[in-house]
Design a binder for these strands. Structure first.
Lengths: 206, 206
DNA sequence: CTAAAACTAAGTATAAACACGTAGATAAAA
DNA sequence: TTTTATCTACGTGTTTATACTTAGTTTTAG
C-alpha cells in the first residue's frame, strides 16, 4: 500500500486528487495539509511513503517545504504538482531534489503512473515538463535565476519598491538593484514592469 | 433532480466539484466543458438546469460565455465560480446577470446551498463577495476609466514604460503620467503594479 | 583544497517616475 | 448654448531606478 500525503491549498483540488487516487487500490491518502506549515507538522507525526505537493501555496510555499524535506535524514519521496510549466519552478524543484514534477492538468492515469514510478525509485517528469527542460538545456546552461533572485522576483511581482524589498529581506538597496539587474539580464527583460508581467504570467507571484 | 453543467478548465477541479456535488442526491452533473467554446456547444445540445462556470479559462472566458447565455431567450441559471475576489469580476458578473458568485475555496456545503438557492429563483453571493460589494457601493459611483485611460492601462499591463507608452500613442510622457495618475486615483490603486494586476484580472491586457 | 557560482554591496552619474498644481483645446451632453 | 468631461501637457521638486564598474565574502561543487 502506497501511503500518500497531500499538500494543496485548494480543498476542491485535494478532493479531485483524492478521487483520482481512490481509483487505484494500492494507493491510500493518509494525510492532507493546506499549506507548508501544516505539511511539516504532518511529516513529523505521520507515516507515509510519498508527498504530493503543490508549489503555490500561502503561508509557506511548496518549494520551501521541499527544501526542508530534502534536508532531513529520511529520504521521503516528493512529487511536485504545479499549475505552471515555467522553467524556474521546474529547475528549482529539480535542484532541490524533487523526485518528480507534473502539471495539474495532466490526465488522471498519469498521476498514478507518476506516483508508482517515484515509489519504485525512479523519477517522473511529465512530457510538457521535459520538453521545457530540453529547450532550456539546448540553449546551454543559460542563466538560471537563482533562489535569491527568485525571491526578489516574487517581491517585485508584489509591487514592492527596491527599498521595501531591501527592508523585507534585510539587504541593502544596492544589493536588490544588483539582483534585479542580473535577473533582467538573465531573462532578457529590460523593464521592471516586464519583470512583473513575467512573474505574473509564470505564476511566480503571491 | 437538478441537472448541472460544469465549466472549468482544470480537470482536477471538475473532479473535485463532481465529487462534492455527488454528496447530494438531488444533484446530477449532466455535462462538462473545459472552456467557453465547448460550453456553448453543450448549452445548445444539452438539457440542464444550471451552469456552474469558472471565470478564468483559456479559449473563451466565463464572463463572455455568461454574456452570451444571458442574451438568449431561455433564462438559464448561472453560478459563477472564481479564484478571485476581485471586485471588477464580481461587478461584471452581476452586470451580466449571473445568479450567483462564489469563491472556489468555500466549504463544500456552501456550494450545494448556493445551487439550491439559485434553482429556487433566488441569487447567491458568498459572504466574502457581498462584503466586497458593500464596500464598493459605499463609495458610490466612483469615476469610470475613460477610453484613453483604458488604452494606457492596457499598455501598462503589457509592461511598457511611460516613455514607450508615450511613443506608442503619440503623446508626451507628461500626458501618460497624467493619465496614469488619474487612473490610479479613480481606481483607488496607488502602485503601477496594482494597475497591472487590475488590467490583467479584468482582461484589459493582450 | 581550489575554482566557480552566488550573494553581498559600493561609487558615480544619469534617467525615469511620481506628487501636486494648473490649464488650454475640444468634444459631448444638458 | 452653456456646462461638463476628456484629452492634452507643462512647471517644479523629490524620490527611485538604472547603467556600468568593481569587489569582498560565503557557499557549493569538482
Amino acid at each position: 500500500m502506497i501511503r500518500v500525503l497531500l499538500v494543496d491549498d485548494h480543498p476542491l483540488f485535494r478532493e479531485g486528487l483524492k478521487h483520482r487516487l481512490s481509483l487505484d487500490d494500492s494507493i491510500e491518502v493518509v494525510g492532507e495539509a493546506e499549506n507548508g506549515k501544516q505539511a511539516l507538522e504532518l511529516i513529523k507525526s505521520l507515516e507515509f511513503d510519498i508527498v504530493l505537493m503543490d508549489i503555490n501555496m500561502p503561508e509557506m510555499d511548496g518549494m520551501y517545504v521541499l527544501e526542508l524535506i530534502k534536508e532531513q535524514d529520511i529520504d521521503y519521496k516528493v512529487l511536485m504538482l504545479s499549475m505552471h510549466d515555467n522553467k524556474e519552478y521546474i529547475l528549482g524543484a529539480m535542484r532541490h531534489g524533487a523526485n518528480g514534477y507534473i502539471l495539474k492538468d495532466v490526465p488522471g492515469k498519469e498521476l498514478i503512473v507518476a506516483i508508482k514510478k517515484v515509489i519504485s525509485g525512479k523519477s517522473y517528469f511529465s512530457s510538457e515538463v521535459t520538453e521545457i527542460l530540453s529547450k532550456e538545456l539546448a540553449g546551454e546552461q543559460r542563466g538560471i535565476v537563482t533562489r535569491r533572485e527568485q525571491l526578489v522576483l516574487r517581491l517585485i511581482s508584489q509591487g514592492l519598491s527596491n527599498k521595501r524589498i531591501a527592508q523585507e529581506i534585510n539587504v541593502s538597496v544596492r544589493t536588490v538593484e544588483t539582483h534585479k539587474r542580473n535577473i533582467k539580464q538573465k531573462l532578457g527583460i529590460d523593464s521592471t514592469m516586464g519583470l512583473m508581467r513575467y512573474a505574473i504570467d509564470y505564476g511566480l507571484d503571491r
